[in-house]
């Protein structure tokens, strides 16, 4: 009798233990699971060009200075939909400024202002057709940084060259207050006013001259930021052969 009870207890225990290790049935299949795409074109929308040109190319403009007895060309870049930045010497002694985009769209400047603090000028266009604008870097590039210059050397095709920042120096042309940067990027007449971009595509300077040994001189973005913040430093230029090259009683362009 005792054996029977023990056997029954053992059998019950084994049965319960066996129930514990029995396999479960499958859980129901999910019916509303949507996999997350690993690559979404929409997420890369900023990286997709609408027409095969990069943002930097679209924001870079060719500037034609129809002067008093001369025609000169330079480069500029869009700061907003109707404002662009170039060099003062690009727009000097001008009676009319014409701007053309990478795709041949022509714009006419309605106002021009410049400063004596640096070789920088601001051009305003009548039409707000500029669609790609420059993003200004927060800090000047450090020595050894890789930079890219986009411009219209010799008034020719839109060209991209790269180089590195070699260091800073006092402006050898005395056209700017403070330090300017020397880079190894090769520039030509017509490249003046070209945006200098860092590896992120942000503007870190503006080309304004080249040295005898083939290096380029750029106005650092810190100077540009100061000028854009301090609008009183910018003075309107009169687009006329009769007027003096710079007036002091006009409205400053922001």
């Amino acid at each position: 009798m005792r054996f029977t009870r023990i056997a029954a207890a053992a059998a019950s225990t084994m049965l319960l233990a066996a129930c514990g290790v029995l396999p479960d049935g499958p859980s129901p299949m999910p019916s509303d699971w949507v996999p997350t795409p690993t690559v979404s074109p929409a997420a890369r929308a900023d990286a997709i060009s609408p027409d095969g040109f990069s943002r930097a190319q679209r924001m870079t403009l060719r500037v034609r200075n129809i002067g008093c007895g001369f025609i000169a060309t330079g480069t500029g870049f869009a700061y907003d939909d109707s404002t662009l930045i170039t060099n003062r010497h690009v727009i000097e002694d001008s009676r009319s400024i014409e701007v053309s985009t990478y795709d041949g769209t022509n714009l006419t400047a309605t106002a021009v202002s410049s400063t004596t603090v640096a070789d920088i000028a601001i051009i305003r266009t009548e039409e707000s057709v500029l669609r790609s604008f420059a993003a200004l870097a927060q800090e000047d590039p450090e020595e050894g940084s890789v930079i890219t210059v986009i411009g219209y050397p010799g008034g020719g095709e839109l060209t991209t060259v790269t180089g590195v920042v070699l260091g800073s120096t006092a402006d050898p042309l005395d056209s700017a207050v403070g330090k300017v940067l020397v880079t190894s990027a090769e520039v030509e007449p017509g490249s003046s006013g070209s945006p200098v971009l860092n590896e992120s595509g942000a503007v870190v300077g503006v080309v304004y001259a080249k040295t005898d040994d083939g290096n380029s001189l750029i106005i650092p973005v810190s100077t540009l930021r100061t000028l854009l913040a301090e609008t009183s430093l910018l003075v309107p230029e009169a687009l006329s052969c009769d007027a003096p090259s710079q007036t002091t009683n006009g409205t400053s362009i922001p």
């Binding site: 060719r62 060309t73 041949g104 022509n106 008034g155 839109l158």
Partner: peptide, 12 residues
């Protein structure tokens, strides 16, 4: 780019 360049030169 070529056409834009030619147009720009023509403008000049």
């Amino acid at each position: 780019s070529d056409l834009a360049n030619e147009e720009a030169h023509a403008g000049d």
